[in-house]
């Protein structure tokens, strides 16, 4: 389906994201300074923020792909939407898990209703629902249509939820998180930026692999149908 140029580009992307990820890891542990108040625990922050960014970005891509599908009806938009959600869900799960891991030593509890952590959990639930929806609709065209609509409406509600949750937290101030302002050193910012870059590359690599898998599965179905037709004579 795709030429050898794409094959090479895919490999470059996969290997490149691996290398940049190694650089990011090195920076997180060797380059970034130790945070004064929280200590080494704070180092999880770089991957936590990076995975949150990729999750959110992935869902944004799904939103755009949903619009693209509804306007054009082309299969490739649906493949992009599905792949982006699957990769996004993986990263947003990582965000929620690293958030809880960080919350335990920093605030003494695995879960706080901190707005950013809460909105990540809400997004996780929304896009798990998206995948459940895809699993229970018959027919490729209908599945693509419904999930495009859901991907669009869901993405629009996320900012509304964000504001509602934030105001809700200001009414019930969280003593645990109060006054825990992190002082950001320049080296921390460099590390964060490289981490975000590494995660974005990883997202792109996983996305293109996932899309390729979907195309291959389409191809397989087509070949099977052809074979069946031929064997029937």
């Amino acid at each position: 389906m795709r030429g050898s140029d794409n094959y090479l580009a895919q490999h470059l992307l996969t290997v490149g994201s691996g290398l940049v990820m190694l650089v990011a890891l090195g920076m997180v542990f060797l380059y970034a300074p130790r945070e004064a108040v929280m200590g080494d625990v704070q180092r999880i922050f770089y991957f936590h923020v990076a995975s949150a960014w990729v999750g959110f970005f992935g869902f944004f891509v799904t939103f755009l792909a949903g619009v693209g599908y509804l306007l054009s009806g082309q299969r490739r938009w649906d493949v992009l939407a599905l792949s982006s959600v699957e990769v996004g869900v993986t990263f947003i799960t990582m965000t929620v898990v690293t958030g809880s891991l960080w919350a335990k030593p920093a605030w003494g509890t695995y879960w706080t209703w901190e707005p950013r952590l809460t909105i990540s959990a809400v997004q996780l639930l929304i896009y798990v629902a998206y995948l459940m929806l895809r699993g229970s609709v018959e027919g490729r065209e209908q599945r693509a249509r419904f999930s495009s609509v859901y991907g669009i409406v869901a993405f629009v509600t996320v900012p509304l939820s964000w504001f509602a949750i934030r105001w809700w937290r200001t009414i019930h101030p969280d003593i645990l998180t109060g006054g825990d302002q992190m002082a950001i050193a320049p080296r921390m910012i460099h590390t964060l930026l490289v981490s975000i870059g590494a995660f974005t590359l990883l997202y792109a690599a996983l996305l293109s692999l996932r899309m390729k898998l979907e195309w291959t599965s389409d191809e397989l179905i087509r070949m099977r149908l052809k074979l069946e037709r031929r064997s029937r004579g």
């Binding site: 809400v122 929304i126 629902a129 929806l133 229970s136 609709v137 859901y150 509600t157």
Partner: peptide, 20 residues
């Protein structure tokens, strides 16, 4: 209503979106 598990699907789809 167009999905296989319609009674289950509605709350799963709707609740996270109705959060605000």
């Amino acid at each position: 209503v167009n999905t296989r598990a319609r009674e289950v699907m509605l709350p799963v789809l709707l609740f996270p979106l109705a959060l605000p």
